[in-house]
Structure formats: C-alpha cells, structure tokens
Simulated assay, not measured.
Amino acid sequence: MRGSDHARHRTLVDPNGRGVKPDLIVCGLGPAGRALAHRAAARGRTVTVVDPAPERKWTATYAAWADELPNWLTPEVVAATVPRPMAWGTRAHRVDRPYVVLDTGRLQTSLAIGDSHVVADRAVDIAPERVTLASGATITGGRVIDARGLARSAARAEQTAYGVIVDAERCAGLDPLFMDWRPDNGAAPGAPPSFLYAVPLDDERMLLEETCLAGRPASTGAQLRSRLRYRLDARGIRLTGDEAVEHVRFPVQGGGPGPRRFGAAGGFLHPATGYSVGATLAAADAMAAGQDVWPTAARVVHRLRSAGLRALLALPPEDLPLFFDTFFTLPPAAQRAYLSGRTDLAGTVSAMSALFVALPGRLRRRVAAATLGFRFAREVERLRP
C-alpha cells in the first residue's frame, strides 16, 4: 500500500497538480472496507481509502459458514474447516453445515487493493461525494462509502468475549463448538448467560472463548475470563496463564441498510448472532460494481433479524439454552435461511415462523411481547409464503 502525505492539502492532487477525483472513496480499512476496495480495484476502478492506521494488522479471529464465501476469495485464507460443528443448548446438536475459520493474516493480505491511494487520516464528515478529514483536508470522489464499523454506545447491545489460544493436544476429545450453553461456567443463577465457543485455528491450535451473545450491558471481559477458567477447569483443561488472549467487544445494534455504508455500519452484521464477515465478503463485488445490495427483501430481513435480537435480549437467562435447542432442531435449510439468508425473505419468514411455533408456550409469550412493538407477528403472517 502507498502511504500519503497529501492529507495536509485541501484536496487530493496528482504529481502534476491536476485535481484527482477517484471513482470510489472507502472510509475504513477493516475487513469490509478492504474487501470493497479490493473488488473495486479488481474491476479497474480508481480507489482512495482513508484510515487512521492503514498498516495496522488485524488480530481478531474471523469465521463464516463455508457456503457464504464468494468464489473470488482465495482458498488459502481458510485455516480450518469443521464439517459439522456441535451446538449445545440443554442437549447436543450437530449442525449439518461446514464452518470455516479464516487465517486472519492471509485474509488481510489476500484483499490486496492494488494501486489504491491510501490516506492515513480519520474521516470526520462523510457526504455522498466528499470526505472531510480530521486534518482539515477534503477529498472528493464519484462515490463515498462508510466502512468504519459501529461506534460503541450505552444504548446499543454488545457482544463480548474472552478467549485463550491453546495447543490442540490439550483439547483432545473436545469437539469444535459453535456454541455451548451448558451451565458449567460457574455463573450465578439468573446472571447474564454466556456460552463456550471452541474452534481450531489450524492443526496445532484451538481458540476457546467464553462469549456473551448480546447484552445491554454485556458481560465484562473480567466476568467472562472467570467463567472460562471455571468451565475449562471443570472439563479438565488446565491453563498456564501464558496463553495468548483474545478480547472481543463490539455493538450488535446501530447499523442500517443504505447505498453509502458497508459492513457493520451498513447493516451487514447479523444483529442476533454478531456475524458479518461472510455476508460482507459475499456482497463486496456487487457493492464495488455499484449494484443495489439492499433490495426490498433484504431490508425486511434486516428488520426481522433486529426483532430476533430484541427477543433474545428479553428472554430470561435460564431460557436461552432451551431457545437454542429449539432453533437447532429446525431443518438445516431453515437454520441456513435465518443465519445467512440476507436477501431470502421467504426463507427467513418461514424459519422464524417455524421457530416461534416450536417454542414452549412461555417462551412464545416472551418472544411475542418483545417483538410485537415491531408488529412482528403481523408481519410474519402477512409475509408467510
């Protein structure tokens, strides 16, 4: 990537002094922004990217369902594949869908942005064709896309997690876990719940992570660390204290569909799961081409998913394992539609309807109470295939 000291000027100029107006300006170089810039550059677009730390290495662990990944993504970014991950509510469920963990470094490197012009500055004001930077500079372009992610706020539910990376041999016999809600983490009765997420990072290492799916406020890192240590000790996995640590904290609310936002800021984060990278990668090429990535069906799915998050936030802690027991007994097609069908309105409605009907009565009443403000039941009936 090329750095830039043009940020001190009022406008971006080329070496001959002529004004330069790129086809696309991308604000933010996380996975969403970098994927968008990568696909735009691959299409021959002129691209300027703006980020306060463009050389920063990614350290988070990213994962997705294998069928979410686009064909243009190099296979080498997949570090590990779990053919049928396990999910636990109050009992075990096999998820009949391959799950992949990405190699973070290879993913970042693979999303090469070619000759894109990189401006090391912070975007403070974004308009459809103009960006004003913290330095006072202004950059204009054909399109401006905000891919800076979501800012934290006390009003927004968050997902938090605390994880450790351990040698795989120390986890012998531990199935990869998409989520495990069993109550062996030492949490007090009635405390905000959390689950164990356990996935291979490669052939030699596993990530073991205690996760608060969504909370307002969410569980703290210290709380999750204590629970993880308690849970692992109960399962005979001893920690030395020298393990590499992963901290996770991000909002699951606040993003919204629109033609000038991408990634979590643009509504691509699933509000009821916290996943966004698979959906973002899948849509990056269409977004780079200037296509409408938010047809009416996708906008309605986004609202239905937001209703699903409100339902999860309203459930008593002791009922969450039963809720996920019900979800993971749905047919694989219904699970996939809800988890990944961003534009699949019929599939999402069918999955949510089936889940609602299958829930025990007391959970149905709570879910209805949490979502009726959104007219959820009425919308489901109106849109039922």
Rank of each mutant, 00 (worst) to 15 (best):
R378Y: 09
R261F: 05
T61I: 08
G266N: 04
V118D: 01
G89Y: 01
K57Y: 08
V100P: 00
A337M: 11
F376H: 06
R227W: 07
R39T: 06
E209K: 05
L372N: 14
P83V: 09
A198P: 02
P31L: 04
L315E: 04
D344S: 11
G258Y: 01
A53K: 13
P85F: 05
L304Y: 03
R382G: 08
R382K: 15
R364V: 09
S110G: 15
L312F: 10
V248A: 05
S350M: 09
A297I: 09
T90W: 09
V277K: 00
P200H: 12
V118L: 02
R260G: 09
A7P: 00
R39H: 12
A222V: 13
G141L: 01
I139T: 00
D233T: 12
E169H: 13
V101S: 03
Y230L: 06
G373P: 05
A154W: 10
R130L: 12
L304P: 00
A63T: 06
G114D: 10
D167W: 07
L107I: 07
T104H: 08
E55R: 13
I25V: 15
A80K: 06
A289N: 08
G241R: 12
A80G: 09
G141E: 00
D242Y: 13
R152E: 12
A333W: 03
M86Y: 11
R366V: 11
E55N: 13
G136R: 14
T74P: 05
S110V: 06
H9I: 02
L102Q: 03
R260C: 07
P22M: 08
D325F: 07
T240R: 15
G33V: 01
H302W: 08
R97I: 05
D285N: 12
R39L: 09
P193L: 09
G136I: 11
V77C: 04
G290C: 14
A154N: 13
V293F: 01
S276Q: 06
D125E: 15
R310C: 06
A265K: 04
M287W: 04
R182V: 03
V252I: 14
R216A: 10
R18V: 10
A198C: 14
Y99Q: 07
E129I: 10
F262S: 03
D285W: 00
T90Q: 14
A311E: 01
A42P: 05
P332S: 14
L322F: 07
N71F: 13
I113P: 01
V164R: 01
A7D: 12
T329G: 04
G241D: 10
S306V: 08
D292E: 10
V47Q: 01
L322P: 02
V252W: 03
S306T: 13
A157T: 03
